[in-house]
Lab assay of single mutants.
Amino acid sequence: MALNTPQITPTKKITVRAIGEELPRGDYQRCPQCDMLFSLPEINSHQSAYCPRCQAKIRDGRDWSLTRLAAMAFTMLLLMPFAWGEPLLHIWLLGIRIDANVMQGIWQMTKQGDAITGSMVFFCVIGAPLILVTSIAYLWFGNRLGMNLRPVLLMLERLKEWVMLDIYLVGIGVASIKVQDYAHIQAGVGLFSFVALVILTTVTLSHLNVEELWERFYPQRPATRRDEKLRVCLGCHFTGYPDQRGRCPRCHIPLRLRRRHSLQKCWAALLASIVLLLPANLLPISIIYLNGGRQEDTILSGIMSLASSNIAVAGIVFIASILVPFTKVIVMFTLLLSIHFKCQQGLRTRILLLRMVTWIGRWSMLDLFVISLTMSLINRDQILAFTMGPAAFYFGAAVILTILAVEWLDSRLLWDAHESGNARFDD
């Protein structure tokens, strides 16, 4: 018995066209964080690309023209004298008006014999932002004059995390709450300039795509075929072959399989920071003279006294001054041990922890910024005066060393310790 099946006739004509040209192939790229070699397709503007294995951002879609970056830099340069030299806060102490600005706080630190601690604050609040705007201006002028731009481009990517104007702005709020127990506070004209400078700096850093600047100024022929001998440069993120001198053909720094002496430098910085954190938390970090009496505060006791007036601000200072430094030390110690013992479990967790400490590390400088600003506000000789204690130097040095330890660690070593050939990683 035959089955009668109805015929289905399409209502619209289906047209099949042959592909007349070869589909576009992607360029081969190595991930600078996990060293995976993959094919990167062509990316349009405002599109980002991520590593298929570790999800690290390979290409950032946010990109401004150099002219727009230069305009932002010149605007920031105009704001800087007002943000640093004009009063941020006014207080009335014992019937006398006192003005506080950024430069005055750094000068008070240096004047009291601790120039190293003052230079830490100076670099993060004044030096690094000033280098940022002058570097962008150098790129703008240098591109037109045919100057060598490689050193500036190499420095810009590392400079971003040292620009800490946003953290200093939080420190202004913390210092205001600490001082309000002794005097009446009012915002100064410099505060508005400083807030504007923070906003412009944040926007500029978020749109400063150094890798795209490398592509514009020093374009290189990408690798179009897969080759395990391809290496990625950690300076400019170019994937290719080393030249005859073993250097990256684009930025001219040595092109090595792994960062040289990464573990040794990381261990040295980490152990030194552990040693410095002990006096930083045991010795007094601030000293207040009130009517001839002397009151010393460690980091913890200062947080407890701050909690009596504002528990939320005390929580912020606790996280930045105690929780973050010790968390960074514990995480980095764990990561280094996992590399030495070739741990194969929990790779995803370790990668996330490394990215976390990379982002939060700079916030530990908050305590030094609060001390710097408070020193310029309260300084009335023996009637009422505020000065920093010996722990300030140890704390600042420990924070900087932990930042350097994270920067010096080559994250690809975590993958080397893991089993080879993993296309995915999980716990």
Rank of each mutant, 00 (worst) to 15 (best):
I360Y: 08
Y394M: 02
E22L: 06
T5I: 05
Q29R: 08
P151Q: 03
Q55R: 07
G173T: 06
F38H: 04
V406S: 04
L366R: 00
H184M: 08
S39K: 06
I303C: 15
A312P: 13
S273G: 11
I177F: 12
T110Q: 15
W415Y: 14
G421N: 04
S411R: 11
R258E: 08
C34V: 00
R25D: 09
M388T: 05
L323T: 09
F395T: 03
R231A: 04
I371R: 00
L270P: 02
A115W: 03
N281Y: 04
T15G: 06
L384C: 04
L373C: 02
E407L: 10
Y394C: 02
L373N: 03
P24F: 06
G421Y: 15
T387D: 02
D243L: 07
V203S: 14
L205W: 15
T204Y: 06
F425R: 10
E419T: 08
M365I: 07
A175F: 01
C251D: 02
I311Q: 15
L337G: 12
L3C: 08
S338L: 15
R231W: 07
Q382K: 03
Q344A: 12
A312F: 12
W107E: 15
C233K: 00
F386R: 00
R258A: 07
S45P: 07
R380L: 02
I91G: 01
R53K: 08
K328M: 00
V210R: 15
V102E: 01
W359I: 12
I274H: 13
M164Q: 10
E419R: 11
N310E: 15
A417P: 12
I126A: 15
V163G: 04
R380P: 00
W359Y: 11
A269E: 01
K328G: 00
W107D: 15
D426A: 04
G61I: 09
N101K: 02
R30C: 07
L368W: 01
I316R: 00
M120S: 03
I131R: 00
L165D: 15
P222E: 14
V232K: 14
N281S: 11
A398H: 07
W140G: 13
N291D: 02
A115G: 04
Y218P: 04
K12I: 05
N291S: 15
R221G: 14
H184E: 04
L205F: 10
S420A: 14
M120W: 03
Q345R: 13
Q264V: 04
Q55I: 05
D114L: 06
V163K: 03
R144H: 12
E212M: 15
W64C: 11
A70V: 12
C343F: 15
P87H: 05
Q55P: 10
A18G: 07
G20H: 06
S39A: 08
M1F: 00
T204H: 11
G389F: 01
L413E: 10
C266T: 13
F326Y: 04
I253E: 15
N209P: 12
I172P: 01
E296N: 14
T334I: 13
L130Y: 07
D427S: 10
L191C: 12
G85E: 09
N422R: 10
G95Q: 05
R250T: 12
T358N: 13
Q180F: 14
P129K: 12
I400N: 09
Q33W: 09
A73P: 03
L353A: 13
L200W: 13
N209E: 11
R221F: 14
V133T: 04
A385D: 04
V174K: 00
A280Y: 02
R294H: 06
T327Q: 09
Q33K: 11
S286T: 10
Y241M: 14
S193C: 04
V133Q: 04
D243C: 09
R226I: 15
R256E: 13
M375K: 10
P219C: 14
G171E: 01
W408L: 04
R245S: 10
L205I: 10
S321D: 00
W162K: 01
C124I: 03
F38P: 02
A268T: 09
L300K: 02
G142W: 03
H46N: 07
L377W: 11
L404N: 14
K13Y: 06
Q244E: 12
K13D: 09
Q112G: 09
E419S: 12
L37S: 06
T298Q: 14
R59C: 05
D27A: 08
I322W: 09
L282S: 11
T349G: 15
T349S: 11
H184P: 05
F386H: 00
A128C: 11
Q33L: 10
V102A: 06
Q186V: 11
R259D: 15
L323P: 01
S321V: 02
S39D: 07
Y289A: 02
F141Q: 07
T202H: 15
S420H: 07
H46F: 08
T204G: 08
G421T: 04
R380N: 01
F386V: 01
K342S: 12
D60P: 06
S176A: 09
Y218L: 08
C233S: 05
V275E: 11
P222N: 10
N379L: 02
C124V: 07
H340G: 11
L88M: 04
T75D: 13
T239L: 11
